[in-house]
Simulated assay, not measured.
Amino acid sequence: MAAPQIVPYDPAWPSLAEAWLERIRRAVAAVTPEPLRLDHIGSTAVPGLDAKGFLDLQLLMAELPDEAQMSTALASCGFRRARGSRPDSPGVDRDVPRPGTSPAHHEKLLFFREEPHPQNPGVILHVRRMDSSFADFVLCFRDWLRSDGSARADYAAHKRALAAEFAGADDYDDYTRAKSVFMDEAQRRMGWPRPPRATAAPTSR
């Protein structure tokens, strides 16, 4: 992928994402009968937020599936396995753990689909474990941006500044790494990780 280009929010993104989530659900049914969770994540999942022209989707499973089987299943929807522009491209085979979290369970599979028509967004699918703390972070980050107009404006300005800074780049990698400054601040403002729920004390009968 070339340098990032930020485009105005498109009200069609949520419905397009829902359609893709259903297609993916059907496609992976042959790979795993286990319960799974599918979500629209990222900037295109936040009404009013400018974004890159790609829908980010997340598939959560108890264990990462066999890569070859998953690749075959998703090929029916036009997805290809992402390999990264560089050997150390972030977020391709493993997520970078957020500060203060365990590095366990951050392995992932990343797939993408580029649309032949410029007016249609491409699709990026992040396949993660249910117990990945990074998976929880992206859901909380999405919900925080949806509920906080000031945070949305700050993030939009940050992304546009970075897109301008890296406009001549050959890939997304430096842009992605530079966003970590905002993510670190967002983590503090969000109060994430969320404190564990208290367990009720057993009662005698």
Rank of each mutant, 00 (worst) to 15 (best):
P4V: 12
P4G: 06
V7N: 10
P8R: 13
Y9H: 14
Y9S: 10
Y9R: 06
D10R: 08
D10H: 05
D10K: 03
P11Y: 00
P11A: 05
P11V: 04
A12E: 09
A17G: 07
A17N: 03
L21E: 02
R26Q: 15
R26K: 14
A29T: 10
V31P: 03
P35I: 00
P35R: 09
P35Q: 02
L36D: 03
L38M: 07
I41N: 05
G42N: 04
S43V: 03
T44A: 05
D50R: 11
D50F: 05
D50P: 07
A51T: 03
A51E: 04
K52D: 03
G53A: 15
F54T: 12
F54R: 09
L55R: 03
L57Q: 04
L57K: 04
L59I: 04
L60I: 05
M61S: 06
M61N: 07
A62P: 10
L64I: 03
L64Y: 07
P65W: 05
S71K: 00
S71H: 01
T72G: 01
T72Y: 02
A75K: 04
C77L: 10
F79W: 00
R80D: 05
R83A: 09
R83Q: 12
G84R: 02
S85D: 14
R86T: 13
P87W: 08
S89T: 11
V92P: 01
V92Y: 00
P97A: 01
R98K: 14
P99K: 02
P99M: 01
S102I: 04
S102P: 09
A104G: 08
A104F: 08
H106F: 08
L109A: 01
L110H: 12
F111W: 01
F112M: 01
R113Q: 03
R113D: 00
P116F: 00
H117S: 15
P118D: 10
P118I: 11
P121G: 09
L125G: 04
H126W: 04
M130K: 11
A135P: 15
F137I: 08
L139N: 14
C140V: 13
C140Y: 15
D143G: 06
D143W: 08
D143L: 06
W144H: 15
L145K: 14
S147F: 10
D148T: 11
G149V: 01
G149W: 03
A151R: 09
R152W: 03
A153R: 13
A153M: 10
Y155W: 02
A156H: 04
A157S: 15
A157L: 13
K159Q: 15
L162G: 07
A163F: 08
A163W: 06
A167T: 14
G168P: 11
G168H: 11
A169W: 08
D173L: 05
Y175R: 06
T176R: 00
R177C: 02
R177W: 08
V181Y: 02
M183V: 13
M183N: 13
E185V: 09
A186V: 09
Q187F: 03
R188D: 12
R189P: 12
R189F: 08
R189N: 12
G191V: 10
W192L: 10
W192T: 12
P196K: 06
A198K: 11
T199A: 13
T199H: 09
P202H: 03
T203Q: 14
T203K: 14
S204W: 14
R205G: 07
R205P: 14
R205F: 11
